[in-house]
Amino acid sequence: MKSLSYIDVFTPRSLEEALELLDKHRGELAVLAGGTDLIIQLRKAQQKAPNLLNIYMLDELRYIKHDNEIIKIGALTDFATITESPIIQRHAPVLAEAAATIGSVQILNKASIGGNIVNASPAADSLPALYVLNATLTLRSKTGTRKVAIEQFYKGYKKLDLQSGELLTEVSFPAMKQNQIGMFFKHGLRQGDAISVVNGAILLEVLNGYVKDARIALGAVAPTVVRATESEKTLIGQRLSEDVILKAAQACLTSISPIDDVRGSAAYRKEMCVNYLYMTLWQMMRMVNL
């Protein structure tokens, strides 16, 4: 553990000032949001910690809006706000469900969705939900704004399409439609403050009892969150039945490449992935066929 007392912290009062500072000190500043990942990493890091750009005061990055069937969330919005938001509960319940499982009350109040996205842990709990919602990230720098689909943002383990000088300011996605249902699952080793052994989100669009579209994202089973494309294919065009969902659950094995680690063996992770997909699809089947 290291003392961090020598670090300089810049605390801008506006987004403009923040982007200005990021540009001026290109590559020398780490962005500090809630700090629930960053501070721990700095204390453990081998190299000297960088100076910090503390954006925690920028309330202009805290919002949840419903705009023309698009849901927009400011990057600094914390997970307690997200999970309690009526807009999210109504238009993206799968994200509300995922957000509620993050850490404990203290973490929920401090941790930002932007931090969860940029920290890029394969086990991050908001990511599978954002994947199935087809989320778009808004990245801003002094010179401009660009939008990236969340799946394009991750290039490998903790490799991001994010330039120095860029700040993540917003995450947005289409509001869920009437005929879409979504569910999130998480397997942790204890009931509170658990890091996911596997997690995942499923979003199904159902028309006249048939699956029109299916999106399944799985976490903690590969270097980045992955889409279970074979499982999705197995479902599309089908009516949900025990047979179909079992096949779909088993098909996920082609998409994942888990490793052995302190939270579980690869074999156990695979088994949990299949079991969770089956259990979650089974619940969705009940909802659809009611």
Partner: peptide, 22 residues
């Protein structure tokens, strides 16, 4: 203890003390 015999979880994130929820 890992394969190389290092302690894998000398921290309170992965050493699982119970939480109130447990």
């Amino acid at each position: 203890i890992g394969k190389k015999h290092k302690v894998l979880n000398p921290n309170l994130a992965d050493y699982l003390v119970p939480t109130a929820a447990d």
